[in-house]
Amino acid sequence: MELDQTDKKIVELLIEDGRMSYTEIGKVLQLSRVAVRARVHQLMDAGVIEKFTCVVNSEKTGKHVSAFFEVDCAPANLVEVAESLANNPVVASCYQMTGPSTLHMHVLVSDFTQLESFINEELYALEGITRVESHILLRRFKSRTGLKL
């Protein structure tokens, strides 16, 4: 689907506020509510908009430690390790990266005791991991949940 300027503006408005009504979007873009609704549904049907969600401040929910990991795996174990990690409730995101067989993941936990437990009892317990590098988040300067068009 080729996005025109109106589609791009609709997506940008929804990235800023996913609860914005079709009427409110229509006022900004000088379109009818029905026209906006039709375009949003087209964007959803085309897979441009995958889903609507809310962004939760992890610290406000007791997750005070945010850590990023680079996990190298034996190629034969990559998918199994990735699926296991992706199903772990403390793993916020998990991606396969370029490199030998590298996963990048973001983990949110309540404290360093829980982080240590995750590393020692869950991460290192997985067969096929050859190297783990971790980075603890000190301060967030920017976090974007949607694609900037």
Score class of each variant (00 low, 15 high):
residue 131 R to M: 10
residue 123 L to G: 04
residue 132 V to I: 14
residue 135 H to V: 11
residue 143 S to I: 12
residue 143 S to N: 12
residue 114 Q to M: 06
residue 128 G to Y: 01
residue 116 E to K: 12
residue 142 K to I: 07
residue 143 S to Y: 09
residue 126 L to A: 01
residue 128 G to S: 05
residue 122 E to K: 09
residue 115 L to R: 02
residue 116 E to M: 06
residue 138 L to D: 07
residue 113 T to W: 14
residue 117 S to F: 02
residue 115 L to V: 01
residue 114 Q to N: 09
residue 141 F to A: 15
residue 132 V to A: 05
residue 137 L to V: 08
residue 134 S to W: 01
residue 112 F to C: 03
residue 142 K to R: 05
residue 123 L to M: 03
residue 124 Y to V: 06
residue 127 E to K: 15
residue 136 I to C: 04
residue 114 Q to E: 13
residue 112 F to R: 10
residue 118 F to K: 01
residue 117 S to Q: 09
residue 115 L to W: 14
residue 125 A to H: 09
residue 134 S to L: 07
residue 130 T to E: 07
residue 125 A to P: 00
residue 129 I to Q: 01
residue 115 L to F: 03
residue 126 L to K: 01
residue 135 H to P: 00
residue 135 H to F: 11
residue 140 R to C: 14
residue 140 R to Q: 15
residue 142 K to P: 06
residue 116 E to T: 11
residue 119 I to M: 07
residue 131 R to E: 15
residue 117 S to E: 11
residue 122 E to Q: 09
residue 127 E to G: 02
residue 124 Y to N: 13
residue 119 I to T: 13
residue 142 K to N: 04
residue 137 L to E: 12
residue 130 T to P: 01
residue 125 A to C: 06
residue 116 E to C: 00
residue 119 I to V: 14
residue 134 S to D: 04
residue 133 E to H: 15
residue 134 S to Q: 02
residue 135 H to R: 12
residue 143 S to V: 12
residue 128 G to I: 03
residue 139 R to Q: 06
residue 126 L to W: 05
residue 123 L to W: 02
residue 143 S to P: 05
residue 136 I to N: 00
residue 126 L to H: 03
residue 118 F to W: 07
residue 113 T to L: 09
residue 135 H to A: 12
residue 124 Y to W: 06
residue 115 L to K: 02
residue 129 I to N: 00
residue 142 K to S: 10
residue 140 R to M: 03
residue 136 I to T: 03
residue 127 E to S: 11
residue 117 S to R: 05
residue 137 L to D: 10
residue 136 I to K: 07
residue 127 E to C: 03
residue 118 F to C: 05
residue 136 I to S: 00
residue 141 F to S: 14
residue 135 H to M: 14
residue 125 A to F: 00
residue 133 E to F: 09
residue 126 L to R: 04
residue 130 T to A: 08
residue 119 I to Y: 03
residue 112 F to Y: 13
residue 119 I to R: 04
residue 132 V to G: 02
residue 131 R to G: 13
residue 132 V to Q: 07
residue 124 Y to M: 02
residue 119 I to P: 05
residue 129 I to K: 01
residue 120 N to F: 09
residue 143 S to F: 07
residue 126 L to G: 01
residue 118 F to P: 12
residue 123 L to Q: 00
residue 139 R to S: 13
residue 133 E to W: 05
residue 139 R to Y: 06
residue 132 V to L: 00
residue 128 G to Q: 03
residue 141 F to G: 15
residue 116 E to S: 12
residue 129 I to G: 00
residue 120 N to Q: 12
residue 129 I to H: 00
residue 117 S to A: 12
residue 122 E to N: 11
residue 126 L to T: 05
residue 125 A to L: 09
residue 132 V to R: 08
residue 114 Q to S: 08
residue 136 I to Q: 11
residue 134 S to I: 06
residue 117 S to K: 14
residue 122 E to H: 03
residue 124 Y to P: 07
residue 115 L to S: 07
residue 113 T to A: 04
residue 124 Y to A: 09
